[in-house]
Structures are given as C-alpha cells and as structure tokens.
Amino acid sequence: MVTTSTAPTINTQPSPAVTAREAEYRRHAVEVRSVTKTFGSTVAVDDLSLSVAERTICGFIGPNGSGKTTTLRMLMRIYQPDEGAGIIRVLGHDDLHAPPDSVGYLPEERGLYKRMKVIDVLRFYAELKGCADIAGVARRWLERMGLGDAAQKRVEALSKGMAQKVQFITATINQPQLLILDEPFSGLDPVNADVVRSAMLDLKRSGTTIVYSTHDMHTAEKLCDEIVMMHRGRKVLDGTLASIQRDYGSDTIRVRLHDTDAVLSDLPGVVQVSEYGQLRELRMTPGYQPRRVLEALMERGSVHHFEICSPSLHDIFVRIAAPVSEERRNA
C-alpha cells in the first residue's frame, strides 16, 4: 500500500516507496488490473487482469469476438475502459488519453494513405513519433523488409503483402519499447510471414516487448514466451506454453495406423478423436492406461506411430472455444 503525504511541503525527490513501485511496473511492460469494457449492453472485456514482462513476446489468442482487439485498443488508449473499472499501465504510464510514442501499433484493419509514396508515409509516421535520422532509419527498415526498391512507389502500387510490410515498418520505425500487433501475419504469404517473424524476433532481442494477437496457433507456439487466451471477454489461459500444457497434462495420444479408416472412438478411455489425414489425435480420460490403448490399437492393425504427448495449443484452443460453437449451432 502506498501512502501519500498531506503536508504542504514540495518534495521534488520521489519517495523510495514510489520509486520501488515504478521499478516494479517497469519490469512489466504491460500491467492490466480488473479492466472491463462494455459497448452498450455487450461486455467486450470482462474483469481482465494480466501482465506482460519486458523483453518478451506475448501472444493473444482466442476466437473471433473474444475481446482481443478491444484489449489491444485499450492498451493503445484508442478505447477507454469503463469508469472505475481497473487500471491499464503501459510502460509505466497510466494516462488514459495519450498513447506513448515508445509504443508501436499495427492494427488489424490495415490502411495507409494510398496516394502517398512509401518513403513519405514512413517519414510522416517517423515525424509523428519524434524519430531522429528519419531517412536513415527508413532506408534500413525498407532494406530489412525487402522493400528497398519500393521507397518511391505510391502505396496504391504495392501488393497487399508489401503494403502490410510497410505498415509493419510504420509501427516499428522508432524502435518502440512496446510493440502491439493485431493479427500481424494475416494475409501474408509464408515468405513474407517469415520476414515479419524474423523482424519481430530481432526487435525482441534488441529490447522491445511484443504483444500480438493471432489465430495462427502453430506460430504462437513457436514464437511466444507467454500466451494469453481470451474467451467471451474473459481471460481463460495465461502462462508459458509449457505451463499451459502442464495444466492440461499428457492426455493426448498421437497415432498413425496402416488402416487409416479404422474406427478409434470406441477404444478404452478415448474422449475425442481428431482426424488429420494420416495422423490422428486421441484425447483420453484422466488416468487412462496407455498400454491398454496401444494393445487395443494393435488388435486393429499395424501401428506405425504411437506418441504420448501434451495437447497442442490448437487443441487447447478448440477445447475451450468449441463448446461455444456448439451452443451457437444449437441456438
């Protein structure tokens, strides 16, 4: 608890308690406590609390309409949380009206001034961010993203992937301390996705904290230090991939059989079978006996692959989000 003095003296030195608290906040690039956001009668974000450690990559996952974009927009001060509903602290600032210049933002909805030249777009955003050596930084970023020849082209002449990379540069041009990306890989081909992913990792290495939302579980598993899953406006998962998987236990068996059409749903302890063509994943009841499952499988034919593993992020996502889809179908 922090106490404040009511004495009418002016002390220009921060108190040790305040300094310690700020230092604590600074270790977390993002600090959200009990934040709620409603639009009319719709609760978009419900009592959300989370923190993102500095110099990490945090992935926001969740089905459409789960509150990811609203949360990111609140971090950017584009939306304000409901009155009295918690605090949002970004890079130690809790001013609700001004996004700090040291935060870069790539929104989900892409949009650049189409008639401007690429170099002018970058110069414009760099000036807004108070960036020094604009020309040099812009040139380096363009070359880094494989857009060296596009500097003098108008935005409207770029392909979608190129425009998206230009927009990525506008978010990162001032080497932000915090980079917030809403679906940065959507619409990118694998080559361009690799370029963006590589740039994100370089930024992380140079000290930038990255928060990004995605539907790409495969990338999130590999890229994120921490993962937050939102569902119906609430946080339902928060932690490292390993800790999340640990919570779910090794309840998954991955198998490949000679007979790809063999029915597996009646095996002992099987709750659900997920088909991936050659490969199938069996979700098992707690306390199942792997040996009995293997024996039962061998009775049905030749077993080429048998692996006891934790559920993938995709699987965990589906387990949480699927009931909603089921409910919606039934509604």
Binding site: M1, Q80, P81
Partner: peptide, 19 residues
Amino acid sequence: MGQRPPRPDRRRAAARSAS
C-alpha cells in the same frame, strides 16, 4: 459512447488497490 473514462481519483484508488 457507453461508459466514460475513469475519473483520476478513481484511477488512483484502483492503482492503490492493485499495488
């Protein structure tokens, strides 16, 4: 639209309770 932003005094109170 909808709720107004928290007043500074409420934000300070929320910050204190959070810390």
